[in-house]
Amino acid sequence: MGLLDAGITKHNMLITSVDNVLNWARLSSLWPMGFGLACCAIEMMATNASNYDLERFGIFPRSSPRQSDLMIVAGTVTMKMAERVIRLYEQMPEPRYVLSMGSCSNCGGPYWEHGYHVLKGVDRIIPVDVYVPGCPPRPESLIGGLMKIQELIRMEQIGISRADALKKLSEKSVDPQFIIERERKAVGA
């Protein structure tokens, strides 16, 4: 539940935990770094543009790693690029999040066997929080992935590690098959 949904009365006073306020602020202004590596980047740009309008979630690409807290690895990471990706990641201030978008950056994608020049998964070089499958993923999937990042931020607390937060998140996971079946039934398909 969002903080503002709680309804504020009593002279705009509101009692909540510091964690809640911090997390709310951070997840409502996720700034990804504006960089794309291959075809997936086109889909990421489409997600940023008016049809899908990421800005309604406060997500707006920044042109400097110093100002970003999210790295969307959108596309094929070549061996040549891999070292640059590490450098960019290290330039980002903490806390930082990484979303791996598309098969290429998840596992090498179409280049997994014969792509001598492709890194087979960006998680070989930097820690990845959320993977979005697809080649390329539709904007809806990317938004889904970004909302997972927001959920992850919601799980965080001062004093607990990222690993713990990820564990808390995975405990809350739902079986997508069940939801798909349910939705199918609802529309009578």
């Binding site: 061996m79 891999a82 070292e83 596992c107 090498g108 997994w112 066997e113 001598y116 087979k120």
Partner: peptide, 20 residues
């Protein structure tokens, strides 16, 4: 030389594993 028919990919590049 990657496009030679008998090319075998190198194991590591700058400490990063190359094969799948």
């Amino acid at each position: 030389y990657p496009l030679r028919k008998d090319y075998k990919v190198q194991d590591q590049y700058h400490g990063i594993k190359v094969p799948y």
